[in-house]
């Protein structure tokens, strides 16, 4: 099984609008990446895990997209980039939290994540289905530090203007994307076998969510003070 175009969704695109949105979403990863490049020293100093996440996101899109164009199996690469992404996001929030208890808790997610991924891999037939459960688990796990971040913000009330905090926008970008992703990745195999024609709708929504996430990420990066 190979993934064509933007990750795994483009192959199911029925309408041209899906294709256009899918390509826009593929290129939307460039937006935070370019902003990152423009002021990489300041971003690195602010939170280097955020910079690494964006770099990983960009490379993941470039590599998996290129493999897909040449019709080369790209699921392993996608899985690998996802694991790296989870690590970066968890460590990104580890650095963002003020509470030591939350920091400790979030670090425990890493072994839990690895164990969960291994268990899913061991019980998963890679040849006949798309590895949606891995990504659903991945999204669900990533939601934990994001929700905890908002919970801490509400409890600490340290930012008078929270909208000026870059991490708020980064988290606001992650939250809807990964929330919706849980549902989408859980259903992808079912859709693939029973309602193939609906995969386009799923792809379209996923692409829109990705574009929104990239815009909010960019907004967050934009707020990081320059050197």
């Amino acid at each position: 099984m190979y993934i064509e175009g933007h990750l795994f969704f483009n192959f199911a695109c029925i309408l041209n609008i899906n294709l256009i949105v899918a390509y826009i979403s593929s290129f939307s990863v460039l937006l935070p990446f370019i902003i990152l490049l423009a002021n990489y020293k300041a971003f690195w100093r602010y939170n280097h895990w955020l910079s690494l996440f964006i770099i990983n996101n960009f490379i993941s899109e470039a590599v998996t997209g290129t493999l897909a164009v040449y019709k080369i199996y790209n699921m392993l690469a996608l899985d690998l980039f996802s694991i790296v992404e989870a690590f970066f996001i968890i460590l990104l929030y580890y650095k963002s939290y003020k509470s030591k208890a939350l920091k400790k808790f979030i670090l425990w997610l890493l072994p839990f994540y690895i164990t969960g991924q291994i268990l899913i891999y061991l019980n998963f037939d890679r040849n006949s289905q798309f590895n949606g459960y891995t990504y659903a688990f991945h999204s669900a796990l990533i939601l934990i530090p994001i929700i905890l971040y908002f919970w801490e913000k509400v409890n600490l009330l340290e930012d008078v203007y929270i909208t000026k905090n870059p991490m708020f926008w980064v988290s606001a970008g992650f939250l809807p994307f990964y929330s919706v992703s849980i549902l989408h990745y859980s259903l992808i195999n079912y859709l693939f076998y029973h309602y193939t024609h609906l995969l386009g709708v799923l792809g379209l929504i996923h692409s829109i969510m990705l574009i929104i996430m990239d815009i909010l990420l960019s907004k967050g990066l934009w707020l990081i003070p320059e050197e």
Partner: peptide, 21 residues
């Protein structure tokens, strides 16, 4: 059902962000 689930999750996410704000 799929759209309803997606919208529900989106509303939940936007709700959390709005509540925090």
């Amino acid at each position: 059902a799929f759209m309803l689930g997606t919208v529900a999750l989106l509303v939940m996410a936007i709700g959390i962000i709005s509540f925090v704000l």
